[in-house]
Design a binder for these strands. Structure first.
Length: 621
RNA sequence: GACCGGGUAGCUCAACCGGUAGAGCAUCGGCCUUUUAAGCCGCAGGUUCUGGGUUCGAGUCCCAGCCCGGUCACCA
């Protein structure tokens, strides 16, 4: 970098960093200010400082300026707004607790402090000290004021050289937000709030489990064999030992070894790594809670997780009714999740029968059942379109949703398309009219129209694709081929995951899952086709599995061998784990809880990336 | 992986049928002691994601690639 910190360097327009470096050099040279500060004692978080405001003292001081009982505070924060009004300067400071305004009046501070205040840039970190008062408009404000023998009234704690985000829109590009989370966190207070909620949720989970006698442990993340789940691992290499190592896909097998060793209740909250695709619900590294309780069962851990989630929700949110709100319109509630106990418990077979009319009998689905399932899968896609139409054309949407079959959508396709086209034309006319008028105050309206047009266009695209009979047939063929080659157990699980799980918004424990897909759980004594487990779905996704853990080493070995032979996923058998079971593991209940998804559910985040501080991003380039 | 949308000033976005690339905010200079996206005056700021092609002329059209988002698929 050849931009010296020299105020005489000729200015290149638009070079924000250069401007700031020159400004910094002036502060150093002319005011003797060190722009990277040092230790500062006695600072209050902004929210705490604000809480100290004393209205009576403020009022008294306003009546009689010689009386000043206003509380004095010292605060620090990043400058997020700056309004220089000549001889009075307002700065809005922000920290992780909130915002607080500072006012610097030329009359109340020494000239060099006022000069500094004028030089302060957005994103600089400053400290301010002075009495807490309010302004004409009632905003609680620190009135910067030096004190004999200490506070300067305003100091620079850290100069920021980078260009600040746009002050009104903030940082909005999702990519930049995830890449530059350090900016996102202060530019978008919602992000800070969500992340703090995440932290509190995890704290409360730990509190809860400790309160019930669980000990938190740490087990290997680098494993020479990856086990405990079916997933592709990340592979790495240990140089000194010259051996491959895997990043763990689950801690399960180690936690169970701890039960063998004599721990009765253990849990671990930490990262798992799965080398699979990314989606709004999948990040390659994600945080899981796993807990094991000796002498428990899937039922004891179901009770536990139910109580745990409710307790956490009450402590952090004070309610069991979780509302998700529209990103555009905070008034609009898009989804309500009711966590009130007791949570429904229903077997997978009953659920499938109830929703689809498919009576699963441990055999492959009959030709007729397959047709039912296929048409349900197709209808589901259409249903989404029906739901999206609901707001703009309730009667048409109602008709489609009620008919609920692919044929109904095909029959009505001209009407649907005609409606969408008419709507688009209307919106575009509206859009052009506003744009031609060039009325700036309607900018928000323009943006709204633009979004609606966008939504409708994608809707029309989706619809075209769906009613394209050859396309639909191709998709159906692919599905039929795959589905008819599945085992009965896989068919049941497939149907559940595709068609039922996404509709389970309120908490539902799905029980009696085919044991064939769950090798680490105990088979049901009365009907070994099913395992003694639950899969808890909330918010349309699986959030927690719970097992009666399998502790018979012979059965466990058989399951694992079967899995290895059956699946393409190369997974070596963990012989040492089987050894451990031979030593003897007490019967136990165990459960997992996907922390990221839990936080999404509780905070209404629509993407897992919104609840992870630094989600995985492809390197920039 | 497939489809759709997007990539233009530091930020947020415009640019009609292919004809000199604009605005707001931020920056820079000036005015202003109760602002709340403060206001007013003025200056400046561009390899239109990259590389090819068509054309007298490309931000715009075509081809290839990169990146982001959405939907679907894959994957527990």
């Amino acid at each position: 970098m050849n931009t010296p910190n020299d105020p005489r360097t000729p200015r290149t327009p638009g070079d924000i960093e250069g401007d700031r470096r020159r400004k910094m050099a002036r502060l150093r040279d002319e005011l003797g200010i060190e722009p990277y500060g040092g230790r500062i004692d006695g600072l209050l978080p902004l929210a705490e400082a604000r809480a100290k405001y004393d209205a009576a003292a403020d009022e008294a001081h306003k009546q009689d300026a010689t009386q000043d009982a206003r509380p004095r505070v010292r605060v620090a924060g990043r400058v997020v707004q700056s309004r220089v009004m000549g001889n009075l300067i307002f700065l809005s400071l922000r920290d992780c607790s909130g915002d607080l305004q500072v006012a610097v009046s030329k009359k109340s501070v020494p000239p060099e402090v006022f000069k500094l205040a004028k030089q302060v840039d957005l994103s600089d970190i400053v400290t301010a000290a002075g009495p807490l008062g309010s302004t004409k408009t009632g905003e609680i404000t620190v009135w910067s004021q030096g004190a004999p023998g200490g506070d300067a009234g305003l100091t620079l704690a850290c100069k920021s050289l980078a260009p600040p985000p746009e002050k009104f829109h903030g940082l909005t590009d999702p990519e930049q937000r995830y890449r530059k989370r350090y900016v996102d966190l202060y530019a978008n207070p919602d992000v800070m709030r969500t992340m703090q909620l995440r932290i509190r949720i995890i704290d409360e989970i730990r509190d809860y489990l400790r309160g019930r006698g669980f000990l938190e442990v740490e087990t290997p993340m680098l494993q020479s064999l990856h086990g405990g789940a079916a997933a592709r691992p990340f592979i790495t290499h240990h140089n000194a030992l010259d051996m491959p190592l895997y990043l763990r896909i689950a801690p399960e097998l180690y936690l169970k070894r701890l039960l063998v060793g004599g721990f009765n209740k253990v849990f671990e909250i930490n990262r798992n790594f799965r080398n699979e695709g990314l989606s709004p619900r999948h990040n390659p590294e994600f945080t899981m809670l796993e807990a094991y309780e000796a002498f428990g069962s899937w039922e004891t851990v179901a009770d536990l997780v139910e109580d745990l989630v409710c307790t956490v929700a009450m402590k952090v949110f004070g309610t069991l009714e979780i509302n998700h709100r529209d990103a555009e319109d905070a008034e609009k509630i898009t989804r309500t999740i009711n966590l009130k106990r007791p949570w429904r418990r229903v077997s997978m077979v009953d659920l499938v029968r109830e929703e689809l009319g498919w009576s699963f009998n441990k055999k492959r689905a009959s030709a007729q059942d397959v047709q039912t399932i296929l048409s349900a899968i197709q209808t589901r896609s259409f249903r989404k379109i029906g739901l999206r139409l609901k707001e703009s054309n309730p009667s048409l949407a109602g008709k489609l949703l009620q008919a609920g079959s692919v044929e109904a959508y095909r029959r009505e396709k001209d009407k649907v398309l005609a409606f969408i086209r008419a709507e688009l034309t209307h919106l575009e006319q509206e859009f052009n009219r506003l744009q031609n008028d060039g009325r700036l105050e309607d900018k928000a309206e323009l943006e709204r129209l633009d979004r609606q047009i966008n939504t409708l266009t994608t809707l029309m695209n989706d619809f075209h694709r769906l009613i394209d009979e050859s396309g639909a047939k191709r998709e159906a063929d692919v599905f039929l081929y795959k589905f008819t080659h599945m085992s009965p157990a896989e068919q049941l699980v497939e149907v559940y995951e595709k068609l039922i799980e996404p509709t389970l918004i309120d908490p539902t424990f799905v029980t009696h899952v085919p044991s064939a897909v769950i090798p680490l759980a105990r088979e049901n004594r009365d009907d070994p086709f099913f395992a003694d487990v639950y899969e808890l779905a909330i918010n349309g996704v699986e959030i927690s599995p719970g097992y009666s853990e399998l502790n018979d080493p012979d059965v466990q070995e058989r399951h694992l061998r079967h899995q290895v032979g059956d699946r393409e996923e190369q997974q070596e058998i963990d012989g040492d784990f089987l050894e451990a079971l031979k030593v003897g593991m007490p019967p136990a209940g165990g459960f997992g809880l996907g922390i990221d998804r839990l936080v999404m559910m509780l905070t209404g985040a629509t993407s897992i990336r919104d609840v992870i501080l630094f989600p995985l991003m492809r390197p920039q380039g």
